[in-house]
Design a protein around this nucleic acid. Structure first.
Length: 279
DNA sequence: GTGCCTGTTACCTC
DNA sequence: AGAGGTAACAGGCA
């Protein structure tokens, strides 16, 4: 669920939440497997008394730089962070809770329990696995060309792989490929220069649009994305292809379709996105 | 109730 | 190397 634009929105809200300089007083874990590293007891004892110095994002990770260690949070499908001011019973899906020295609670809910928290003395042990930040200046055309040249995967699988580019998920990959007019099953090594140029533009475009609309919230159910403040994103109304099968393509008016690729629902316009290379 | 679907990732086998 | 399957999970939906 949360891809780069959603995580970025969450991080921005956390940054506006007056957390810098606040101390962690208490940690309660309701679902121990939320903690990836280290074990639960060490995680709790090491976290207590650390002060929040900085909050940032790398790929889909939320990065809390603390006085001693770094806390990484990956929300996977259904992880959510929010605050409340009074101690209360944990909700059905609350997995973890942190009490701060201003008596606020930072709570973590995760319906499907896939999210993971890491407390690391050196965050690079985890973050170095990630590929290029697609919104940073190192995401150059040349960098993308080099990555693509090294691979012969289907472009959709390639883009979903966080080791190449960090932060894209199913929604924004489908959107970027639609914008670049590339069929998701195309092999990376078959892409023309023109197509790589188009993709290099499309990726930041769809991500920036997602951030501008504060993320994509599909449906209204529990599992859907909302930010720290409980606000839903607005990007779902801007999507051009994701979950729009059967609807006319906004570019060519042909009917868009949904196929299965890399075990993921994959949406495309069969007229704009052909399997043959575009010169 | 049954079976299939879902926005992520890691790991396995072929 | 890379495609495909499965698993971790819970709930929505037909």
């Amino acid at each position: 669920m949360p891809e780069l634009p959603e995580v970025e929105t969450i991080v921005r809200e956390l940054c506006e939440s007056d957390l810098i300089g606040k101390k962690i007083c208490e940690v309660k874990v309701f679902w121990p497997r939320t903690i990836a590293i280290p074990n639960m007891a060490d995680f709790c004892s090491q976290l207590v008394n650390q002060v929040i110095a900085k909050i940032s994002r790398r790929g889909k990770f939320i990065v809390f730089t603390l006085s001693k260690d770094t806390l990484l949070i990956h929300l996977r499908m259904t992880g959510k962070l929010f605050f409340f001011n009074k101690e209360k019973k944990p909700s059905a899906h609350e997995r973890l809770r942190i009490r701060l020295d201003d008596d606020r609670y930072l709570c973590y809910e995760d319906q499907r329990k896939f999210g993971k928290w890491y407390l690391l003395s050196n965050p690079e042990t985890k973050l170095s696995e990630l590929g290029i930040e697609p919104l940073s200046k190192v995401f150059t055309l040349k960098a993308l060309q080099q990555l693509i040249r090294k691979s012969s995967q289907q472009i959709k699988s390639f883009l979903l792989n966080q080791h190449h580019i960090a932060g894209l998920g199913n929604i924004y990959v489908d959107e970027a490929l639609w914008e670049a007019k590339i069929h998701p099953a195309r092999k990376t090594n078959s892409l023309s220069h023109t197509e790589i140029v188009a993709l290099h533009r499309a990726i930041p475009n769809v991500l920036k649009q997602g951030i501008a609309h504060m993320g994509t919230s599909l449906g209204s159910k529990l599992a859907n994305y909302f930010s720290v403040s409980g606000r839903r994103g607005g990007n779902q109304t801007q999507l051009k292809v994701f979950r729009r099968e059967g609807l006319p393509c906004s570019r060519c008016h042909n009917q868009m379709i949904k196929i299965s690729l890399a075990q993921r629902g994959t949406h495309l316009c069969p007229n704009c996105q052909k399997l043959e290379s575009f010169p």
